[in-house]
Design a protein around this nucleic acid. Structure first.
Lengths: 210, 210
DNA sequence: GAGTTTCCTGGACGTCTGTCAAGGAAAAGC
DNA sequence: GCTTTTCCTTGACAGACGTCCAGGAAACTC
């Protein structure tokens, strides 16, 4: 076989592999939409297929079984779940800036992506009962913790202070705050996001000391 | 009808009503055990019956349908879910006492009742998808918040200080801390409870100021 | 102790679930 | 343009689900 032919075959197989992966991603996206709407407990494969442009049989062409699909979903979920505050961190020039912008960003994602966030908490909790997703869920949680750490570390730096709690604790606090706000927001409390926006700076200020 | 007869009939019907309520409570307890083991998503009526001393048919004698049973479960759950720190609050003579004992109690319930706690978070999350339990769940959450408030308020009093965050925020912070610890504990991290015990006093100290 | 009510069992039902396979449609290879 | 491979649909399957019911067992009434 010539080298050209080999390269061609590689390219084709790569393209096919990519096509395969693309379709998987597309179906996983449909699954995530369904999950965010119905929750883990009530999401079936047929429902997922109905939220896509394919029929239910295709899911077993691209995924070995339901666990395979859901695992893929969780992994893919990371990209959308880990809200990025990097830009805010990079742009902030003073501690009050960061305080304000970070709080506003949290409130904004609470308002805009509430269903996505409730799915995240649903999946994280599911991992307490089912071993299958646990590793991936913990990995996502680790990244979220890291993300919060960036904010807190930069905040301390701008305030000429230093963090007084471990980053795991700082994450736990802010996550708890967010989750409580989500609860109220989805229960119809109009000002849940506004209250979150007010509470975040107060907490941020208390996890560092000059 | 004589008064004596009337009283007798009342007593009997009350006894029957109580018997009915008792059996409901007993079945709900079986359901809660099952839920704590399997999680909401994988708990079926047959499984619940198998974890009781009755057959599956009896559930529809005591409950109208599955939602009725689960709603009753959530209500009944409150009693076991709302861990009582009242005694600790009453006994503490100094702020460091309360700090230490409260932290130890949280760590203890994390170790002893992890499966119960994961069920609580599961149900609370479920209420974000299903309207049915939402009111009851929010009521339980309110009581938990109240319970934490008692601790914080007494702590502030003992420390001759005052709380600097709303009670909802204090609850959100400590709940977030606990949930994170639960996550790690159930993931097999040996010292999750110990770390929680260390983190709680630090947070407690930071939600009040002299 | 016969009759009545309460309580519980076990099986049946229709529906929905995850899974799979046969076969057609579309694309790719030559 | 015919063959082969890839992709997708459709329908079937066994099992589990919530629900309901006929009927027996147990408890209670008088």
């Amino acid at each position: 076989m010539t080298e050209a032919k080999e390269r061609t075959r590689d390219r084709i197989s790569r393209r096919q592999a990519d096509k395969f992966a693309d379709r998987r991603a597309q179906l996983a996206a449909s699954a995530l939409r369904t999950l965010a709407e119905l929750g883990y407990a009530r999401t079936s494969l047929r429902e997922i297929a109905q939220n896509s442009e394919f029929s239910h049989g295709v899911l077993h062409y691209y995924f070995a079984d339901k666990v395979d699909l859901l695992t893929h979903c969780v992994r893919q979920f990371e990209e959308v779940c880990v809200t990025r505050y990097d830009e805010i961190v990079a742009r902030a020039r003073t501690a009050p800036d960061l305080e304000r912008d970070f709080a506003a960003a949290m409130a904004a994602t609470l308002r805009a992506d509430a269903k996505m966030h409730r799915l995240w908490y649903d999946l994280r909790n599911q991992s307490l009962f089912e071993e299958s997703f646990r590793a991936d869920v913990l990995e996502i949680d680790r990244r979220r913790e890291e993300m919060i750490h960036h904010v807190v570390a930069r905040y301390a730096e701008l305030a000429s202070a230093s963090a007084v709690v471990p980053q795991a604790v700082a994450y736990a606090l802010l996550d708890g705050l967010f989750q409580q706000a989500l609860l109220r927001h989805l229960a119809g409390e109009e000002d849940a996001a506004a209250e979150l926006e007010r509470a975040v700076p107060a907490v941020l200020a208390r996890v560092v000391v000059a």
